[in-house]
Amino acid sequence: MTRPFRLLTASGTPYLFLLPGLVILGALLSVPLYKVVEYSLYDNVIVERNPTFVGLDNYRNILGDPGYWSAGFNTIVFTVGSVVGHMIVGIGLALLVNADIHPRARTFFRSMLVLPWIFTAVVVALNWQLLLNPFGLINYILDWLGLISEPLDWLGNPDLAMWSLLLISTWRGYPFIMVSFLSGLQTVPRELYEAADIDGAGFWHKFWHVTLPQLKPVIFGVALLDLIWTFQLFPLVWLTTGGGPGRATEVLSTLTFRLAFVDFEFAQAATVAVSILIISAAFTVLYLRNEARRL
């Protein structure tokens, strides 16, 4: 065997091991990514066999469209509202199921509370549609309590639809925060709580001055991850409200789908998709920096 060949084999072997992963990544990620960016630079892609290159015209059109900004605003409301909901409910429940109770009861509650995470978006959407139906259970209970005089159309009233969606999203997404926070809680040294007990600290003092500071990196990390996921969430919104009533719950991901498969404006859809990609990428960079700092 010649020396150059030996050298090539020695230095190339690691790359050979990387090759399958690189090929899969290339096929599954880079090609679609490239195609979406390419589509956004042409007019009437897919509909036209020979689309015209239009440069950044689609971006100019989208940025001048009030529908895009309205969907963008809804996306921010939905994302921030969902993440805040996930954090409050997730952290609260993590503290509860971390309490010193009978191990069997603890396992039971932990298992039950993780359930919303297991259901698919279709199941979640259908169940909540039934619950929030004008003749559904929630209206029945509110009526029984004397809080409403006539049934509310939770998902069909523009003033209520986004709030209803946030409720559903919170219910669906809190288990991830709960599980992450719960595992973080196991890592807080017990000595810190013992020291706080000796100092006479109550539950809230211990939570604010021991638990939260200890878990700040975890909270920041999972909140960013949740932000990235929720920002581009499509199925739950599409299956629950379809972006309606009117466009009251239209978010950027449902706008992308509407432009592509309702209006057949694939180039415009690709443009909105690229804008989602850019924002998601920015969040991802933030997340990776945070993770790097923790290591």
Partner: peptide, 10 residues
Amino acid sequence: PGAASRTGGV
């Protein structure tokens, strides 16, 4: 009631 959230299936 609820025409705006009523689907054809429902």
